[in-house]
Simulated scan of single mutants.
Amino acid sequence: MIGCLLIHGFTGAPYEVEPLAKYLKERTDWSIRVPTLPGHGVPGSLKGVQYQEWIDHAEAELTHLITTCDKVYVVGFSMGGMIASYLAANYPVEKLILLSAAAFYLNPKQLTIDIKEMIKDSLRGNLQDNELFLRYKRKIKETPFAATLQFRRLVTFIKPLLHQVNVPTFIAQGECDGIVPLKSAEYLFHTISAKQKKLALFKHSKHLICHCEERDALFSQVLAFLNEKKQV
C-alpha cells in the first residue's frame, strides 16, 4: 500500500490541502492522512506552541504511515512544505511535493497589488466580501507574535538541511502569490539535491494554490509525478 501525508501551513488547517487530498482519494486507494498541527485549527491556540512540536507531530504521522505502508509520499503546503522537506531529508520518503513552500516569506510586489485591490473594494464598500482581506485580517488578529517567531525559527532550522533532500521532488508555485515569493520555489529547486525534480509555475494562482482556478491542472501534474517511475 502507498501512504500519503499532507501537511498544512502556518496558522492554517487541513482545509488548505483538502482539495488535493480529496482529488487523490477519488483516484487512488492510498492511505491518506491530513493532520492538524499543534496550535492550529482552533483560533487562539498558537500561544506557547514551539516549532519543534509541529515537526514532532508531523514525524509521528509519518512514522505511522511508514510502519503500515510499502512506500510513502509527503506533500507540504507553505510552512508545511518546509516540514515536509525536513521529513524527506531524514526519513525513507519515496517522493516529495512542495506547494507554495515557504523557504522565503512575503512577496512585496504581489502584496502591493493585493492591497490595492483591497483599497478599491473598500472604496466600493465591498471590503467585507474580499476573501484575501478577510484572510489577512484573521491571521493578523489570531496570530501571536511569538508564534510568528517560532515559524521563522522553523524555517531557519530547516533551510540548511534542504541539500540533504535526495528524493524525487515536485515544486509548485503560484505567480500571483502575495505571501511566498517566486524566489522561494526557485531557491528550493536549485538547493534540493534530488536528480529527479520539477518546478511548475501557475500564472494566475495565489498562495492558497489548492483552492485557485488552476488547481485541476496542478492536481493532475501532482498525481502524474507521483505515479511516474522513479529514476535510478
Rank of each mutant, 00 (worst) to 15 (best):
Tyr91Cys: 00
Ala89Glu: 02
Glu214His: 06
Phe202Leu: 12
Ala88Tyr: 02
Ile2Val: 06
Leu98Lys: 03
Gly39Leu: 15
Lys139Thr: 14
Asn130Gln: 03
Pro144Ala: 12
Pro19Phe: 06
Asp177Thr: 06
Leu132Thr: 14
Lys206Asn: 13
Leu161Asp: 00
Leu87His: 03
Thr63Lys: 15
Glu213Gly: 12
Leu62Tyr: 10
Gln128Cys: 06
Leu106Asn: 15
Val222His: 06
Asn90Gln: 11
Asp56Glu: 09
Ala147Leu: 01
Tyr51Arg: 01
Lys109Val: 11
Val74Thr: 01
Pro108Ala: 00
Gln110Ala: 12
Gln173Ile: 02
Leu154Val: 03
Ala185Ser: 06
Ile119Met: 10
Lys203Ala: 06
Glu214Gln: 15
Val222Lys: 03
Glu59Tyr: 11
Gly39Ala: 05
Asp129Glu: 13
Gly125Val: 09
Gln128Tyr: 11
Pro144Lys: 01
Lys120Ile: 01
Lys229Val: 06
Cys210His: 12
His40Gly: 07
Ala147Ile: 01
Cys210Ile: 00
Gly41Ala: 07
Cys210Leu: 07
Phe157Lys: 10
Pro38Ser: 03
Leu188Gly: 05
Lys229Cys: 10
Asn227Trp: 03
Gln150Val: 00
Leu226Thr: 04
Thr68Phe: 12
Pro108Ser: 04
Ile113Gly: 13
Val49Phe: 11
Thr169Arg: 01
Glu18Arg: 15
Ala60Met: 10
Gly80Ile: 15
Cys210Pro: 13
Gly81Arg: 02
